[in-house]
């Protein structure tokens, strides 16, 4: 086995054993890290692989969460059916955005603006949709949480941790496979030079749409998890642009277009942000916005000193 696969096996073993070493609070932080590793991986398919910058990925989290949440709230239908609906809706939405952009040659920052616009007016739409509770939000019934009720995805924090671990590992494997397949090569060619890619027989319109569809479907699953983990959904929060930014920070810090970037970035950012919250609480400082300032400083430092993200530099050091 290569150094890389041995390291991967060790990491997997640690992640599986982790809950037995952690308390409840630490477990919730670990779950959050995996959540951002997963959503970062999903976003990376579009931006990192195919070069299409989305600044509105919160729209897929939100639509996915509301789709599965509504089924459960109104009809008592569990998330297994809900996740299918969520994925279908998000793929459809992604294809609409992608079709409009790629058909009318909207690219680069203008494409990014279009993704923000869709997230924003979806938020406003949900604010006026009484069926999902409007701006007042939607609350899923919280049952007793000692036993694992997999059918309704209700259970102790441990269940959510393992579910998120399975999702993050699955996304990692999927992305690793995609990168080595024809799709991965075509996406990277499109990212590097779209005109040259087209001259090599690549229908760039279709392959870009495929990247959007896969990314949207993956993110929709994160939305379903979000709904059943937090049990309350507000358009103001779930569709907010800061949520979209949160999703992209992990891969940007870790390394856009790499497999480990999103994982590493999510870990570093979540631990640092939690660490500083704790540290500030310990010394009794309560300065509003200090966490955001901290985020900004880390982001600046990484962009200045490691413009390709932490992972490429680290991988060289570790000779992976």
């Amino acid at each position: 086995m290569s150094r890389a696969s041995v390291s991967l096996a060790i990491l997997a073993a640690i992640l599986v054993a982790l809950p037995f070493l952690l308390g409840n609070y630490a477990l919730s932080v670990a779950t959050l890290i995996l959540y951002f590793a997963y959503t970062g991986q999903a976003w990376n398919v579009m931006m990192g692989f195919a070069g299409q910058l989305s600044l509105g990925h919160a729209v897929y989290v939100g639509v996915g969460a509301y789709a599965a949440g509504s089924l459960f709230f109104h009809y008592g239908i569990g998330p297994w059916a809900g996740v299918l609906l969520a994925m279908a809706l998000c793929v459809a939405l992604g294809l609409i955005i992608g079709f409009l952009a790629f058909r009318f040659r909207i690219s680069g920052v203008y494409f990014a603006l279009l993704t923000i616009a869709f997230a924003e007016f979806t938020r406003i739409g949900f604010d006026h949709l009484d069926w999902t509770g409007g701006p007042g939000g939607m609350f899923l019934r919280v049952a007793q949480r000692d036993t694992w009720d997999l059918a309704n995805f209700r259970g102790p924090p441990l269940m959510y941790y393992y579910a998120m671990l399975a999702l993050a590992a699955g996304a990692f494997a999927l992305c690793a496979w995609l990168l080595r397949s024809r799709a991965g090569y075509y996406w990277q060619a499109i990212r590097e030079d779209e005109e040259a890619a087209q001259a090599l027989g690549i229908n760039t319109f279709r392959w870009k749409l495929l990247a959007v569809a896969i990314s949207a479907a993956m993110t929709a699953v994160a939305g379903v998890f979000f709904a059943f983990y937090y049990n309350n959904l507000f358009p103001e929060q779930i569709f907010h642009i800061s949520r979209s930014i949160e999703i992209i920070l992990g891969p940007v810090i870790g390394g856009v277009g790499t497999l480990f970037g999103p994982v590493l970035g999510a870990t570093v950012l979540t631990l640092l942000s939690d660490g500083i919250t704790e540290a500030l609480a310990a010394v009794g400082w309560e300065i509003p916005g200090i966490k955001q300032v901290f985020y900004g400083v880390v982001l600046l430092a990484v962009v200045m000193f490691l413009p390709n993200g932490i992972w490429p530099a680290l991988a060289r050091r570790l000779r992976l």
Binding site: Y185, Y186, E192, A196, I202
Partner: peptide, 28 residues
């Protein structure tokens, strides 16, 4: 070919050519 060359700069030389080869060969 392009008069002003357009390599996929971030990819290896082999990967560049593989992108072309995928038109006739589906498997990596």
């Amino acid at each position: 070919t392009f008069q002003i060359v357009k390599p996929f700069a971030g990819l290896s030389v082999l990967d560049n050519v593989m992108v072309g080869a995928f038109l006739r060969e589906r498997h990596a």
